[in-house]
């Protein structure tokens, strides 16, 4: 279980302080799939960085199974929007990267990496370099890399934002399949409402800057990997609900941005 308690994050940008997150309170059950949506620049990624231990909160704390997060670790795996694969390593060597920190023999590492590549449908692509793979395949490698070291929590930062619609949908289905099989806790950040409804058991909506949790919407769509969920009437209802929650925030974020542009120009 992840507990986010009164978390705030303030950055110093050229002498000016800049509040990215404020008073975030959230509980994420073990094995839960939580989607987080919010307008651009609302601090979604900052929140994920805090969960990953890549930066520290200015106030409040984050507990992972009761233990405060003090830094990164292999109990959490992060998947980035831009894949972040090591271009000098082949697909299988990329997946092995996180395993090199564990006490495994070379052969075990290779085997586990191959297994996880096959889990994301990339058998036969083990020896390709990232630049020889399409965007969707690169993101699969990145997901396999995070799964391979068997973290309890998967932190995904708009992982499918750079992909085309077909690839995105098939990767969404695949992620649900993997999530159901492995029972990992997933925190999935996105700016797509439909993606959030389709994937999340709950969808947390964030406000524009400073980012706070505006509302958490529980989603029940039955077994999501079956049938045309996106066409169901409930799906439309959730979409309208979330859209209206987000509309004000997006508008406010836009005005904020315009004001900043004006003050700079």
């Amino acid at each position: 279980m992840i507990r986010i308690e009164g978390v705030g994050k303030v950055f110093d940008v050229r002498g000016e302080s800049f509040t990215a997150l404020q008073d975030i309170d959230l509980e994420i059950r073990t094995g839960e799939f939580l989607a987080v949506v919010g307008p651009s620049g609302c601090g979604k990624s900052t929140l994920l960085d805090l969960l990953g231990g890549l930066s520290e909160p200015t106030s409040g704390r984050i507990l992972l199974d009761g233990v405060p997060v003090t830094g990164p670790g292999l109990d959490r795996g992060v998947v980035f929007q831009q894949y972040a694969l090591f271009p000098w390593r082949t697909a299988v060597a990329n997946v092995e990267f996180g395993l090199e920190g564990k006490n495994l023999s070379k052969r075990e590492r290779r085997e586990r990496a191959r297994h996880h590549l096959s889990l994301v449908g990339l058998s036969g692509f083990e020896d390709r370099y990232p630049h020889e793979l399409s965007g969707g395949m690169r993101q699969r490698v990145a997901i396999a890399r995070s799964l391979a070291f068997d973290p309890d929590v998967l932190l995904m930062d708009e992982p499918y934002a750079a992909l085309d619609a077909q690839t995105r949908e098939s990767l969404q289905d695949e992620l649900l399949r993997i999530w159901e099989r492995t029972g990992k806790t997933v925190v999935f950040i996105t700016h797509g409402i439909e993606e959030a409804i389709y994937l999340g058991e709950r969808v947390a909506v964030m406000t524009s800057r400073p980012g706070r949790i505006k509302h958490v919407v529980p989603v029940s769509l039955g077994r999501r990997t079956e049938g045309e969920v996106r066409a169901a009437p409930e799906f439309g209802r959730y979409r309208r609900e979330l859209a209206s929650l987000l509309r004000d925030e997006v508008e406010r974020a836009r005005i904020q941005e315009l004001r900043e542009v004006a003050s700079v120009g």
Partner: peptide, 28 residues
């Protein structure tokens, strides 16, 4: 690429191994 460093750090790499496994090969 700072993202590669971030990615490696997220997997718990310390400064020394970060240097050896990311900085060095990336600079080749």
């Amino acid at each position: 690429d700072p993202l590669l460093i971030k990615s490696a750090r997220s997997m718990g790499l310390g400064a020394l191994r970060l240097f050896q496994k990311v900085i060095l090969p990336a600079s080749v």
